[in-house]
Amino acid sequence: MSYQEKKNIVSLIATILIFGFYCLYMFQRHQEGSLDSTEAFRFWGSFILILIPVSIIAKIIIQIAFNIFYRITTNEEEPSFSDELDKLIELKATRNSHYVFMLGVVLSMGSLVMDMPYSVMFIIIILSGFMSEVIGYISQLYLYRKGV
């Protein structure tokens, strides 16, 4: 298995774990109170705004740890640059990722049209953000395995 495939698997697992633990932490903290009250907007806003830096920092730390582990276990250095194949795969994965997120945004607007609670819209947007990232990593993994 190549460095890129291993890196994608690690990133995929990291994304799922970070999102899972973050959701557990946030929902435990805000269990009391209705999610449709005025406070709810503040909650969802902070949920998204805090999630972004937390996941970026956690992923940087995990990536550094993975690179150190990779060097120790394989005695090889990770590739220091992205070549044309890497860029092509990244572009295709990003496209798939955007499709998923766009679908999520459309669904979230649909929830408003159908008079669902506002929290449903936020949940759909957050889940589609998470899913788009997961689909991006799975796409990369698939393209590295199957070819472009």
């Binding site: 190549s2 070549d83 194949l85 890497d86």
Partner: peptide
């Protein structure tokens, strides 16, 4: 000027 992975992919 590419990674080994790219040469592997081209050969396969």
């Amino acid at each position: 000027g590419v990674t080994r992975q790219t040469i592997v992919a081209i050969e396969k």
